[in-house]
C-alpha cells in the first residue's frame, strides 16, 4: 500500500548508506515495525513498515482510526515500545527503547502528551513539583512554573494544588505545560484531545500547536479527528492497519485525497451546517 503513494512525500529510503539526506530532518522513521505476541502464539503487526519524517518547526498530523497502530507508533518514537524492525533517528541519534535505566540525555528532546489527562498526572504530587521536575531538564530554558501556567491559561495558584481539583481540559493543559517545560524539540501528542469535550478540542489543539511552534519545537499530533488536525497540522499522514497509506500537505489531503481510505475518512466527518445530512 505504501508504494502506491508518492515516494517523495513518504520519504521511504531503503538505502541506509545515504545519511546526509536524513540529517536535516528532526525525526526520521525508516521502515519501522512493531509486533505484539498474541495469546494463541501468533503475532500481531501493529506497525508495519512505517517510514516517516518530521521536519523542524513542523506540525505533523497522524490520523487513523482506533487500532490502526498510531498509538504504538507514538510509543515507538518515545522509546516506550521495542521495534521489531527498522530505525528511528532523532536529531542524528538513534532512538533506543527505554529500559530500566535513565533515558539518555539526547533523547529527552522527545516529550509526550498522553490521551488520558486523568492518568497522566501524579495524583499525590503538587502541580508545582511536577512542573519543576520537567523544568530541571532544561536549565537554559526561559520557562518558569508561573510562565508555564500562564501560557496554558491556568491561574497561578494552580501550582499549589493537586490534579484532582482540575477538570479534564485543565489537566490536559497541565500535561502540555509539563511536556513543554522540558524544552522538547519534538512533542508527541497521543490523542491529546480525544477525551475532551468537542468545544475544548480545537482550542486545546491550537494551544498545543502555538506553544510548540513558539518554543521552536516540532509536533506530531495524533488524532482520529481529521477536522481538528486540519486546523493545526502542516502535513498529515493517514494510517490504516499499521501502514501509512498517504502523506501530504494538509491542504492536499483535505482537498485532493488520493487514497481511498483517506477519502472515506474525510467523507465521514459530519458537517455542522444544520442540514440534517448524515455523512458517508
Amino acid at each position: 500500500m505504501t508504494s502506491t503513494s508518492e515516494p517523495g512525500t513518504l520519504d521511504r529510503n531503503p538505502n541506509h548508506d545515504s545519511p546526509p539526506a536524513q540529517t536535516h530532518h528532526l525525526l526520521e522513521l525508516d521502515d519501522v515495525s512493531c509486533e505484539y505476541k498474541l495469546g494463541g502464539g501468533g503475532r500481531f503487526r501493529a506497525v508495519d513498515g512505517v517510514s516517516l519524517h518530521l521536519g523542524r518547526s513542523e506540525v505533523l498530523g497522524l490520523v487513523g482510526e482506533s487500532g490502526c497502530g498510531k498509538s504504538t507508533l507514538a510509543k515507538l518514537i518515545c522509546g516506550l515500545e521495542k521495534p521489531a524492525g527498522g530505525a528511528i533517528t532523532f536529531d542524528a541519534h538513534p532512538v533506543k527503547p527505554l529500559g530500566l535505566g535513565r533515558r539518555p540525555k539526547h533523547l529527552l528532546g522527545i516529550q509526550m502528551v498522553f490521551q488520558n489527562p486523568y492518568a497522566s498526572l501524579n495524583p499525590r504530587r503538587r502541580i508545582r513539583d511536577q512542573l519543576s521536575d520537567a523544568l530541571a531538564l532544561d536549565p537554559g530554558g526561559t520557562w518558569t512554573v508561573e510562565s508555564l501556567l500562564e501560557a496554558v491559561d491556568l491561574p497561578l495558584d494552580s501550582a499549589q494544588r493537586y490534579s484532582h481539583s482540575f477538570s479534564g481540559g485543565q489537566r490536559q493543559r497541565i500535561a502540555i505545560a509539563r511536556a513543554l517545560a522540558a524544552g522538547p524539540k519534538a512533542l508527541v501528542g497521543d490523542e491529546p484531545i480525544a477525551s475532551l469535550d468537542a468545544f475544548l478540542q480545537a482550542r486545546i489543539a491550537r494551544m498545543m500547536r502555538d506553544l510548540a511552534i513558539d518554543s521552536g519545537a516540532s509536533m506530531i499530533f495524533i488524532s482520529h479527528d481529521l477536522s481538528v488536525v486540519r486546523d493545526i497540522a502542516d502535513r498529515v499522514a493517514v494510517m490504516e492497519a499499521g501502514r501509512i497509506v498517504e502523506v501530504g500537505s494538509t491542504e492536499q489531503i483535505w482537498n485532493d485525497p488520493q487514497h481511498k481510505y483517506t477519502q472515506k475518512l474525510l467523507a465521514a466527518i459530519p458537517r455542522v451546517d444544520g442540514k440534517g445530512i448524515i455523512p458517508g
Binding site: F199, A202, V228, R230, I269, D273, G274, G276
Partner: peptide, 28 residues
C-alpha cells in the same frame, strides 16, 4: 429547530460553542 440553532444561534453561549469547533466543520 436544528437548522435555526446551528445557522443562526440566538444565545451567545450557543454561538461560542459552534465557533469553538474546528473551522473545517462549520465552513463547509
Amino acid at each position: 429547530d436544528r437548522e435555526a440553532v446551528i445557522t443562526a444561534p440566538q444565545h451567545e453561549y450557543t454561538r461560542s460553542l459552534i465557533e469553538s469547533l474546528p473551522g473545517a466543520e462549520v465552513s463547509q
